[in-house]
């Protein structure tokens, strides 16, 4: 693999508007939800603190339970853009005409997208933590960042799902919307199962990883499932892409 090309791809993603929008959206959500918690009535804080399971504070609880669902819309774009943005601007054909196999091309693009996402997400998380501390005063920043790190397999699954759907759907917009819809359904499924008192959500649902982090539930098994499902989606998408006519 041409590491310079990989580095160039990562640099392109990091310098794109998508990156700045992602960090901006994370910051805005942190601000809005922080202010809601800060200026809500005592009753709400008490209710939230009662709901917030485990050692997570109110902010982290809302972050994982509410904000992450909205953030998925931005996360899927990293998966959708692996090939969709090249299709959108018409350069896919030009790039695939180069002396590089489709598999090598895809592996490079996938790694670049994941690498860039990791950097953006963690940088955004640092900013979010600083905003939360600034508004509310009490947040264990290292613990918050560690929890975001553990949530990465959830994001990996969502990116893999978006990539898989981008192969048949081709347009970025429909890929983003479809993968977001599926991610939301998976999110709601575990949330609804909690509301019916089913206990800790199934480890098979990658979208429940955030909640499991909050309640200090075992993480190894759901992480393995998330990695396996992601690998299957990436592999299936790759095979499909390699075989199809461009």
């Amino acid at each position: 693999m041409n590491l310079y090309l990989l580095y160039t791809d990562i640099k392109n993603i990091l310098s794109s508007k998508r990156t700045s929008y992602t960090i901006l959206i994370m910051a805005v959500f942190a601000l809005v939800f922080g202010l809601v918690i800060r200026f809500s009535s005592e009753g709400l804080r008490t209710a939230l603190e009662a709901s917030a399971p485990g050692s997570a504070g109110v902010f982290e609880y809302m972050w994982f339970e509410d904000v992450l669902k909205f953030l998925l819309l931005v996360v899927v774009s990293f998966g959708a853009f692996i090939i969709s943005d090249l299709e959108d601007d018409g350069t896919l054909g030009l790039i695939l005409a180069r002396p590089e196999s489709r598999i090598a091309f895809l592996v490079r693009r996938i790694l670049a997208s994941l690498g860039a996402f990791f950097i953006v997400f963690m940088a955004g998380a640092v900013l979010v933590g600083i905003i939360a501390i600034g508004i509310m005063g009490d947040l264990d920043l290292p613990l918050f960042l560690l929890h975001q790190f553990f949530a990465l397999p959830l994001c990996l699954f969502v990116i893999a799902l978006a990539f898989f759907l981008s192969v048949p759907l081709r347009t970025t917009t429909y890929t983003v919307i479809s993968s977001f819809a599926i991610s939301l359904i998976l999110s709601f499924t575990y949330a609804f199962s909690l509301m019916t008192g089913s206990g800790t959500p199934s480890p098979l649902n990658p979208l429940a990883l955030g909640y499991r982090i909050l309640v200090n539930a075992p993480l190894v098994e759901p992480m393995i499932y998330a990695f396996v499902f992601s690998a299957v989606l990436f592999a299936a998408g790759t095979v499909w892409f390699v075989k199809k006519d461009i």
């Binding site: 929008y21 805005v28 200026f39 809500s40 909205f70 347009t171 917009t173």
Partner: peptide, 29 residues
């Protein structure tokens, strides 16, 4: 761009509905 349009619409509507979703928590909301 279509995607930006959807993201902007989604973001704006999310903010717009937040107040109503929390209306029972305080007089300000």
């Amino acid at each position: 761009k279509n995607l930006v349009s959807f993201l902007a619409a989604f973001g704006l509507m999310s903010i717009a509905m937040t107040a109503n979703a929390s209306k029972n928590t305080s007089d300000a909301l």
